[in-house]
Design a binder for these strands. Sequence first.
DNA 1: ACCGGTCTGTTCGGTTCCTAACATAACGAT
DNA 2: ATCGTTATGTTAGGAACCGAACAGACCGGT
Lengths: 229, 229
Amino acid sequence: MRQQWSVEANRLLASLPRKSYRELLPGLDAVTLDFGDVLYEPGARIRDVYFPSRSVVSLLTIVDGHSALEVGLVGCEGMVGIPLALGVDISPVRALVQGAGAAMQMSAGGFRKAFEASAPLQRSLHRYTHALMAQITQTAACNRFHVVEARLARWLLMTRDRVGSAQFRLTQEFLSHMLGVRRVGVTHAASALQRRDLIEYQRGNIRILDNPGLEAAACSCYRLVRQRA
Amino acid sequence: MRQQWSVEANRLLASLPRKSYRELLPGLDAVTLDFGDVLYEPGARIRDVYFPSRSVVSLLTIVDGHSALEVGLVGCEGMVGIPLALGVDISPVRALVQGAGAAMQMSAGGFRKAFEASAPLQRSLHRYTHALMAQITQTAACNRFHVVEARLARWLLMTRDRVGSAQFRLTQEFLSHMLGVRRVGVTHAASALQRRDLIEYQRGNIRILDNPGLEAAACSCYRLVRQRA
DNA sequence: ACCGGTCTGTTCGGTTCCTAACATAACGAT
DNA sequence: ATCGTTATGTTAGGAACCGAACAGACCGGT
């Protein structure tokens, strides 16, 4: 029963016709993803795909070996391992668990078979692939044009939407990797938001206090990717 | 015969088994894309797809109504209209002809039918979709971390690869939209490259003089997306 | 030869973010 | 209670780029 719930909490799986998803079930394992887990490294083979239910996974590009930048955020609306749905088994990005929680896991081989056998699954995943491309595109422009404070606000809101809670754990150091800036920049932006009573935080615990206020502080990208998803 | 050549000049079409591509042929029209043509506007319906042979098409996101930023560059290695291969008929980006030249055009309806009927076409396009996602991802990081001069060098090299010529027409104003910076920034970067005898240009005519030199001036992203494509 | 439009070069003050340190504060373990 | 570790705050100088405006150069048309 608990497993059943987990499956349905992922919107991709939940949207499948009953028959399709019953065929899928035997290959799915309920797992818990822990904060900091690295699901894929760039250039490495994809061994499993994941359908997050209450967990959140960041997709990061690694530049010049050191700098990281988040390009996508996957929660219960998506799947981690999209390249497999495109016939490629190498991940171009690092997949990092950013919010611990439940997910359904499936082996790459099992997924390939299930994917080929199920037209509804193909349709869902291809539509999601498109949404993810749009998200990556939007993020690219956002990172280019918007200031850190607005990007931070957007990122906190997107995370909240995916974890389903106004409070979550993450350090400024971690955030700096997501936003592709120095930690100092995050400190400045976060202090500013806290000073305006939009958020509060201490030692890795962040809580959103003023939702509409934070949305106003975020760049328009937040609304755009939200209404498109 | 001329049409035959055009078809084969697009690597996606050329890689199809003879049978698949013969089924495709009746729906394909040889067209010439002109510099500045807008094939799609963001949010609008995709009416046709394009397989460039000697033309080059930029994919741009539009932010806040005014700023533009290139996220992808499509030449003979790809197709313009990838959303259709994912079951979506709305383009999230503007598609702008950046290098005039020949392409094969196909109506959205014709493409959908052909796509559903041809497994090899599906495979090729899905693989290309993955490559395009990787390119967008790389571009996102590049725009975030690398300085204008290196990005300009990369962009010139990528364009050269796709038009197949060391000389092409484009103004600094145009380049500034591609790179997402002010024109002044392009002037600075271009002057610097010219001063080092890597390129020469005048009134929209750019010529690459020193290939290895320009590659050295470009950021590593150039090599990365090249070897992956 | 002249004019208008396009393309390129330059300037200058201001903002954002970087680089690189160092300082403080909270927490956990012994 | 103390100490090491982790998280956050602060500072200062500099680089990259912005915003806005203007100046010169080149071209085509008449």
